[in-house]
Design a protein around this nucleic acid. Structure first.
Lengths: 245, 245
DNA sequence: ACTATACCGATTGTCTACAATCTTGGATAC
DNA sequence: GTATCCAAGATTGTAGACAATCGGTATAGT
């Protein structure tokens, strides 16, 4: 028998609050907080605090946190029965594994991209060149606005993946690749110095796609991430890790 | 101002219900229902029904469904604002992509396994041989109990991954590989006929590990999954897909 | 009979309340 | 002065209530 509550209370509350998708909003907003470092790596997460911050109840926040956990932004610190969430730390080791996985996932997708009909590959190469040339411009102009660079690089890769991957692989990529953004943002200023290397690697990847050489595309993508990882590792050595103690 | 409800109602309910982990229970039980086909591919999911079946409230069931969705057992059928969940269908195309991803993920892990010190590789090879020999026994004895075969094959692969993969890659494998079970169970009886091929492929993988040849280990694992996929595709052609219409 | 509309049941999304557990700080005993 | 235990606060986990919406069916208008 349901407990009947006088409804005045609920009637009083604003009705339009339900936009029908608080969960998504919570996920992206919290993710944003983590990526931008407003929730520092290793720090403590309290559901109620976030709920207040986002002006919603704990329910969608809680779901969003589970989601973030599955995607690796948040990790579970188990204590007996209760589980407490902390923001995933940024370590050199984790970066290495993450970049390696992304490289291989993209490599797999790149293989299929290389198997596309020639016409599509050429058209694709055209779009990729646009992105890469914009990067080159920023490079020569010394106009190092990090945001633009990041988006261009991301678009370059994403364009390749979306051309070749099936739904599963695409979903996998979409859930793993964004995590690199945390490392990128944290050490961006230093990484940009090596931008010319990445641009050159992109050229090689484009050439491989035009040639339709699956092996070469895969190697190129893997190399791009692996090199990026090495460059990142160097910076982490200098500036230290965050949130691991 | 919180609404105060007379507490007799709640007091009456059994207090011990909270074992502190309904979510996990819900996830595994629903997953079990899906894998064993009690919830058929393509069929409709109603949160309240599942909640009743598992004797818990919708809250943990709902979270579990989101989790299952993220792992690919369930897909979202979007309609305007509401989203309805259906059990993910089993198709030849999906199987192809799934097996390919698993092969590459294991390949990546296998690479690192091949880089372990020789002593550990030899010890590992010993354990792997045990599994594979048990498979061989079942093969010669014509004792085709599917369950045992499945577990042995899974243990073989899992042992390799756990030896080489880091936490991220391990988590990835744990979330992707179990999905192959759905295909395995559905078409098991027919797949078993080709068991000897898989056993031979395992021998090659073991040899590659002992040799410490990363490339060869990776190729071996990828080939094992790719061949498995082809054998599966053949069976699907005969028996048809499930849940896609 | 055929279409448009208004209701109604089914279902999902979100909220608050309650219960259980963990942590922390202090009071007390030795 | 230190160790131990207990109380109060903080936090998480689950339940059930409501609100919003979807989909279909009955009904009315033509």
């Amino acid at each position: 028998m349901p407990v009947r509550i006088s409804s005045t209370k609920h009637a009083a509350r604003a009705r339009g609050d339900h936009d029908g998708n608080s969960l998504r909003k919570a996920f992206y907003e919290i993710r944003e907080l983590i990526v931008h470092g407003r929730l520092s790596p290793g720090s403590w997460i309290v559901e109620a605090d976030l709920a207040r911050h986002l002006s919603m109840s704990r329910t969608p926040v809680r779901s969003a946190l589970h989601w973030l956990q599955r995607e690796g932004y948040v990790i579970e610190h188990k204590n007996a029965r209760k589980s407490r969430m902390i923001v995933a730390p940024l370590t050199k080791e984790d970066a290495g594994e993450l970049y390696s996985i992304i490289g291989h996932v993209e490599g797999l997708a790149g293989r299929r991209t290389a198997a596309l009909p020639k016409a599509r590959r050429v058209e694709l190469a055209g779009r990729l060149k646009t992105f890469n040339n914009q990067l080159r411009e920023i490079l020569t102009a010394k106009d190092s606005r990090a945001a633009g660079i990041f988006d261009l690089d991301r678009n370059f890769h994403r364009t390749i993946i979306e051309s070749g991957a099936g739904p599963r692989l695409l979903a996998l990529h979409k859930s793993i690749e964004p995590q690199a953004e945390r490392y990128w943002r944290l050490y961006a200023s230093s990484i940009i110095n090596d931008l010319h290397l990445s641009v050159a690697e992109h050229d090689e990847i484009i050439a491989a796609i035009v040639a339709g050489d699956a092996e070469r595309v895969e190697r190129g993508l893997q190399a791009n991430w692996e090199n990026g990882c090495n460059r990142l590792a160097h910076v982490i050595d200098i500036f230290g890790e965050r949130g691991s103690w």
